[in-house]
Design a protein around this nucleic acid. Sequence first.
DNA 1: ATGGTTGCTTAGCAA
Length: 256
Amino acid sequence: MKVATWNVNSIRARLERVVPWLEAVRPDVLLMQESKVTDEQFPREAIEALGYQLATHGQRTYNGVAVLARAPIEVLSRGYADGGDDSEARFLDARVGGVRFLCAYVPNGKEIGSPHWEKKLAWLDRLRGYLEARCTTAEPIVLGGDLNVAPEAADVANPDAWASSVLFHPEAREALARVTRWGLVDAFRLRHPEPGLYSWWDYRMLAFPKNDGLRIDHLLVTPPVVPRVREASIDRNARKGKQPSDHAPVLLELDP
DNA sequence: ATGGTTGCTTAGCAA
């Protein structure tokens, strides 16, 4: 079973990159972030024509998450439904073929100390709360998405420079670590202990050609999934060429 | 170097 996560930075702007990628890679499940479109305006037909089923949780202009799968999708929750502010479409919980997929788009945080930053930290704490309230570590779960945090120095091209940014600040790393400590394992790291593998490069400052990147897109799994992780990869080719997303897809191959 | 680029929506915001 091939599982992927990809922040596409607008599905409508990216359709001509996403469709050929799905045809070539054929993931069984794709967790998508930043669709930037309402559920009504999502280009479903182009996806369904490839044999995918689709569960969307979108909104106008910003955010938006979706689960694509080559098998039926059972939606368990759109948003956290925890009584808090669910106005931003950043979370989708769905079951596909006996595995539970939590698709998350963590707020960027913009700038340390800003209201966006406080919201980012609070959102990660809500994610931890959702795991505690709605999930167990005994079930097979894949929590995937653009988590907008690089966990370790090995995940950042220039750790000293990025330590003051919202993507690699110690408080952001600690907030993500609180989520992971609930009982999740970084499945990519399991198969790739080496440093220097990134999933996002800024569009600006020639970041991709200079490989000034960060690994901020993750697939975290519960203990029952750990022995099933056969391979992990980042598809850098998807970041190349014409009109790419600023994120590359991250992939896992899971044994049955 | 407070720059640079992209997308949505149309000038300003978010990333």
